[in-house]
């Protein structure tokens, strides 16, 4: 995983609440293997493209000022709905490295952090201000500073964001959480011994031969 420390880039304001993962990536695209770096076209597919696959000119992502965006600024409950890895991969493949929102769908939030995308929770006021600045000066840049947990806009406003501490460490170091857990293998084994000692009825099933 590529470490994330600080990045200045164009941000797309999406002034909507409850953006669900079906909007981010319609389920029909989930048939294709999703972690192949090729899911950028599915990112907000039905918002961006018409039935013939042509870009909708009135979609915010089609505007030249927002090309090459690396951030999205949502509203409340961003990424709610289906647990869908493709929702995160499509952000990443499109180039998004941070999503700033007032709140997130839980699974989406965790998936972002595990896949190198900063999911930054900011206050409702900060969201309003960010949307205002980004719409007033389309294509203006934001700076996301993960170390200090701030988002700054071109008008000079600095907003602090909340992020999960464990995930922050992994993002900063570009480490996988599996590697971290596997270092604790002896603890897991010791736990299993203890646990199945008392849960004998489960132990029988866990120890069966799998056909």
């Amino acid at each position: 995983m590529e470490p994330f420390t600080e990045l200045s880039a164009v941000a797309v304001p999406l002034a909507m609440d409850n953006i669900d993962t079906d909007q981010i990536i319609p389920a029909r695209f989930m048939r294709r293997s999703s972690r192949d770096g090729k899911s950028a076209p599915f990112f907000f597919h039905d918002l961006r493209f018409d039935a013939n696959g042509a870009e909708k000119p009135d979609c915010i992502f089609s505007r030249t000022e927002y090309r090459g965006a690396r951030f999205v600024v949502g509203g409340r409950n961003y990424g709610c709905g289906s647990a869908r890895m493709g929702a995160v991969y499509s952000h990443f493949d499109y180039g998004i490295r941070a999503v700033i929102a007032h709140s997130f769908g839980d699974v989406f939030y965790n998936n972002c952090l595990k896949n190198g995308i900063v999911a930054a929770r900011v206050s409702a006021d900060a969201i309003a201000q960010l949307h205002y600045t980004l719409s007033a000066v389309p294509g203006s840049k934001l700076t996301v500073d993960l170390v200090n947990q701030t988002v700054s806009d071109s008008a000079g406003n600095v907003h602090t964001f909340e992020i999960d501490g464990f995930a922050k460490q992994c993002l900063l170091e570009g480490l996988s959480d599996i590697d971290l857990t596997l270092r604790m293998e002896p603890d897991i084994t010791a736990f299993e011994q203890r646990y199945y000692e008392s849960m004998r009825w489960l132990h029988r099933h866990v120890n069966r031969t799998v056909k």
Partner: peptide, 19 residues
């Protein structure tokens, strides 16, 4: 509970980190 992104972790460790 549903785990999306933690699935590979769960396969490899039979555990999951949760707040």
């Amino acid at each position: 509970f549903g785990i999306g992104g933690e699935l590979t972790h769960a396969f490899a460790t039979q555990t999951v980190w949760q707040r």
